Simulated scan of single mutants.
Amino acid sequence: MSFWRNTLAKLFEDHRRQLVAMVVRRIRDREVAAELVQDVYARLMQSGDCGEPEANTKMLYASVRNAVIDHHRSTFGRAKAMNGVLPDQIWQCETTSPYDHAEARQALSALDRALLELSPKAREMFILHRVDGISNAKLAKKYGISVSAVEKQLARTMRHCQERLAAYRDDVL
C-alpha cells in the first residue's frame, strides 16, 4: 500500500494543475474544482494500483472526468430540489376567494413550522440562500465549510420543507 501512496502522490504532483484546470473549464469554479480533484485523490488512495504507470494516469483522468459528471448530476438534482418550494406554489398573491387566501396562509404556517423544526444553522442558511440570495460559496465561507457541504445542507432542508408542505403543494399546484 505504501508503494501505491507514493505512486499516487507522484501522479498528483505531476498532474494536479492540469486536472484542476480541466475541471475549472467544465464547472467554472476553481474552489469546487480543487475540492473535486482532492476527493478523487482520496478515493484513489483507497482503490489501489492499476499496475502500469500509463494505466494509472488514465485512471486518474477518467476518475476526475467521472467526478465532474457526478458533480453536474448532483448539482442538477439539488437545483431541482431547491426549486421545489417556490413562493408562487405556496402563496397566491391575488387570491380570488377567502378559501384560497386561508389555504395559502395555512401553507405559509406549515412552512414556518417546518423551518422551526430545523437547527438554527440550517434555518439561517436556508433563509440566507432562498430569501436574501446569498450564494453557496459565500455561505460556505461564512460557516467555514465546503460549498459541497452547503449544497447538501440546503438540499436536506428543501427535502424537509417539501415533505412538510406536500399536502399544501398538491392543492396549490
Rank of each mutant, 00 (worst) to 15 (best):
K141L: 12
L128W: 08
M82P: 02
E94R: 06
S119A: 13
E103P: 00
G77M: 02
Q106I: 04
R30P: 01
Q106E: 14
M45N: 06
E103D: 07
Y168E: 13
R26I: 01
K141C: 05
V40W: 09
L111I: 03
P98W: 08
T96A: 11
A104S: 15
E163F: 00
G51T: 06
L60Y: 05
I90H: 02
D171F: 03
V64G: 07
R26A: 13
L11Q: 12
L128G: 13
T95I: 00
Q38V: 04
N66P: 00
Y143G: 07
D49Y: 06
W4G: 12
R5Q: 15
Q153W: 03
R169C: 05
Y41S: 07
A62N: 14
K58T: 11
D70N: 11
Q46A: 13
R43D: 15
S109R: 14
L11A: 11
D88V: 05
R130E: 11
L173K: 07
H160P: 03
G84R: 01
A81R: 00
I134A: 04
V23P: 01
F76M: 03
L118I: 07
R28T: 06
L165T: 02
R169S: 01
L165E: 08
R164K: 15
I90A: 04
K152S: 13
D29W: 08
V85E: 05
A55N: 06
L86R: 15
N83W: 02
R123G: 03
R16W: 10
A114W: 02
A34V: 09
A107T: 09
A9H: 07
R78C: 05
R169L: 15
L154I: 10
R159G: 13
H101Q: 10
Y168T: 02
A114R: 05
R30M: 03
V37N: 04
E103V: 12
A67T: 08
R123L: 10
R164I: 05
V24F: 13
R159M: 05
I145W: 01
S2I: 15
N83A: 12
G77A: 14
S63Q: 12
L19A: 15
A107L: 10
D70A: 10
N56C: 14
K141D: 14
K152M: 11
D70E: 13
D39Y: 01
V172P: 00
G84W: 02
A114Y: 04
S148Y: 00
A166Q: 13
